[in-house]
Amino acid sequence: MAENPLHPALFRKDAIAEDTAKLNDAIVGLMTPMPEWWNIGPDVTREARRQGRGPFPAPVLSPRARTETIAGRDGNDITLRIIEPRQVNGVYLHIHGGGWVLGSSDQQDPMLEHIADNAHLAVVSVEYRLAPEHPYPAGPDDCEFAAAWLVKNALSRFGTEKLTIGGESAGAHLSAVTLLRMRDRYGYTGFRGANLVYGAYDLSMTPSQRAFGNRRLVLRTIDMQQFYNAFLPTITERRVPDISPLYADLAGLCPALFSVGTQDALVDDTLFMYARWIAAGNEAELAVYPGGAHGFTLFPNRQAEEAAARAEAFLRAVTG
């Protein structure tokens, strides 16, 4: 019998390593006095993140990165940030996180360099439009157009048609939405794999989102509510599949690796989506990290290293 990735021991308090608990306490201590982005404005918060004033380290830009601009659905320009390894076996379409409001394609270059070099993938990260300035469907439209551009141009630009996709948090949500749009709007089901890291898949809020409370461990219940209201300011029916992919017909999608920590407000989203992915007849893996907070892969810690190694192994396997 295969090992059960949902073993109850993973979710017990005694499964949380001391270093993980200390990291979580440090994050809470750092974040608790910080102003809320919806009070000071998204622009101020974006600039603070860029300078490393907040929970995440200041971004380290890769000298290897280059950019390319493509046209979007609304006549807007979409910037693609590209990092290539010496040996290219496939392409990884990366979609960054940040609650559809924060983040950018150049704020995780070291992680993308590791994926490029260790999984032998040309990484293409999408600079999609952010809310509240550009609410739904602007961000999903940009990710869809980036995917469609890759389907058309990957062979000529990178010498391969092996495509993968993935992202963290809102980026995992947008990755799932993009896979569904490519299937339904283009008839394309050629992605080899999806690396979906602590994503939000039910924007009407799963039980773990509603029950998380106010401990400021990166993502609280109120944070999700504020992000959703910025992304969907006029939309109250949030179980539409293009908004909440948990409710979509998931048939015919690629193998996926779902990763989440047990102290993440979005833990239910990953557990539910993993189950529905398999129930739709797709291959899926689940990686659960005891005590892992939302965004744990973005901090220097042992679990982040384990998650990176597993994701890279998954991406190598599906493009091998």
Rank of each mutant, 00 (worst) to 15 (best):
V260Y: 06
S175C: 01
H7A: 08
P5T: 15
M205E: 11
P255M: 14
K152C: 09
P241S: 12
D269K: 09
V197P: 15
R239S: 06
T45M: 12
P132W: 03
A311V: 08
Y289F: 13
L61F: 09
H294M: 01
A131W: 12
V124W: 04
D264S: 04
V260W: 11
P137K: 03
V267S: 05
A146F: 06
R238C: 06
P290F: 07
Q303A: 13
P35A: 02
V91I: 06
G72H: 05
T160P: 14
L93W: 03
V123E: 08
E18T: 12
D223I: 02
I27R: 01
S104H: 03
L196K: 03
A21R: 10
I235L: 05
R215A: 10
A313D: 05
G291E: 06
R210S: 15
T262H: 13
G261S: 09
L30F: 03
A58N: 02
P33V: 01
G139L: 00
R157G: 06
L80E: 10
V260N: 00
E3T: 15
E285Q: 12
A48C: 07
H7G: 03
P135F: 15
T164Y: 07
A200M: 09
N89V: 13
D43T: 12
R215T: 13
A265D: 12
S244G: 13
I40Y: 01
G171Q: 01
A148Y: 12
R220K: 15
S208R: 15
G281R: 12
F56V: 09
L217N: 03
A17F: 14
G54P: 11
L130N: 00
F299V: 10
R64D: 05
G187W: 01
I165G: 00
D109F: 03
F158H: 04
F227G: 06
L180M: 04
H134I: 02
P110R: 03
L286K: 00
I78C: 01
M205C: 07
G187F: 02
I243G: 04
L61R: 06
A15I: 07
A176S: 11
R129Q: 08
P290T: 08
A251V: 10
A307Y: 05
F314P: 07
V60G: 14
K22G: 02
